[in-house]
Computed example of a mutant assay.
Amino acid sequence: MTPLVIRTLDESSAHLFDTMPDPLAFRDKHRHTRYRADWRRIALRDGRTVARAAWWGPPEDPEPLLINWFDVAEGEEEAGAALLRTAPWQTRELELDLPSGWRADPRLRTAADLRADAAGAAGYTPLVERFLYRWTPDRGLPERPGRLVFAPEPDDAVFFDLLRRIHSVTLDAHARRAAERGGPEMAAQQELDFLHWLPSPRAWWQIARTPEGETVGVHVPARNPSGPCVGFIGVVPGQRGHGYAYDLLAECTHFLAAQDAEFIAAATDQTNFPMAAHFTTAGYPVVRERLNFRADPVVSGG
């Protein structure tokens, strides 16, 4: 077999990234994503691009946060794995955002499995599958149940304590993984760090209480680099079983709509059946499905 040539792109060669077929419609998914040219790499064989990957992160960061575009030509799984293994950056996660219902379409399933196999050969293992949602104003605002009182909370220590309680018992795979490594404190700190990383105002974070003053949970209307989003929804363990997560989601949606949001992005683990049901009730359609892979120790920079 002809030797593989792996190269990192620059502004003059960035166009080479677009020379592969796009069966999973990544181009449409990432039409508003801004990538640095030098955080994109391709693998060539006989001058033909057989694998490509794009690493993403804020442009001011010295290194990318994750891989969220990964394509491999049929029969070139090892080329795709080599492309990831030899990258000069270590990233903890790889995401594949797939068309909704991809498993029911043999063509899409084959393409997804090919990329998952290549990621696995590079040392990435499956973490969780997620639903990706997108609310738009034509869906209508969800009804507010009116059971809770919402107020901002400027004290990070209060938020940290609530996040710690929420993540002490959770269905979220990322939080469970963090808790396994460092307890609910680590899960809470990672969540807090993420929320601070978002470019939206800290003043948007809110705590929900009953009219009697009992704390129920938190919701964080937010903006990520791509636009408005549900930053976080969480109910403390002692208040679960009453459907309060829907109340939080409805309030979050109303809050962002009042900020003239033209859409609101959101996501939840597919195994989090209660939250998925709340998104459906609140008028959030599934627009994509995400496969999250985590990096094992064998993944290293080259």
Rank of each mutant, 00 (worst) to 15 (best):
P221L: 04
I42S: 06
D113P: 00
A245G: 14
G182E: 04
D97V: 14
W135Q: 01
L44N: 04
H15A: 15
R176E: 10
R40H: 09
L98R: 01
G283K: 13
D28R: 13
L148Y: 08
L44Y: 01
E212Y: 07
L98H: 00
G301Y: 01
A79K: 00
V158N: 05
D38Q: 07
F150Y: 12
D247R: 01
P88E: 02
H15K: 09
E76H: 12
R31W: 14
T210R: 10
A261F: 03
F232Q: 11
N224K: 13
L148W: 07
D10K: 04
R177Y: 09
L66D: 15
S168R: 03
Q259S: 07
W205N: 06
A25L: 10
H174W: 08
E11Y: 05
I6H: 07
D61P: 09
A73D: 08
T49F: 08
R41C: 05
F131R: 11
M275N: 09
Q189F: 06
R202K: 10
W197H: 13
F293V: 04
Q206G: 10
D155G: 08
A122I: 09
V286I: 13
V286F: 11
L98I: 00
G301D: 01
L114E: 07
D46W: 02
Y133C: 02
L24E: 08
G243N: 01
A25E: 12
L24V: 06
T125D: 15
D161E: 14
S12L: 06
P285A: 07
D247G: 03
A295K: 00
L163P: 03
A87G: 02
G302S: 11
R288K: 09
E11I: 04
A73E: 10
P64N: 01
D22T: 01
M186E: 14
L44H: 03
E60I: 03
D28L: 13
C229A: 14
F273W: 12
I264H: 04
R7S: 08
G301V: 02
T215A: 06
P99D: 07
W205A: 07
P201N: 03
R92A: 11
A295H: 01
L192G: 06
E214T: 14
V218H: 10
D247E: 09
G213R: 05
A282I: 01
G101C: 05
A118I: 13
F279Y: 14
D61V: 11
E289N: 12
R144F: 14
P184S: 06
Y133S: 03
D193E: 10
D18S: 13
E180Q: 11
T268Y: 02
G75K: 11
A112G: 08
E251L: 14
V298R: 13
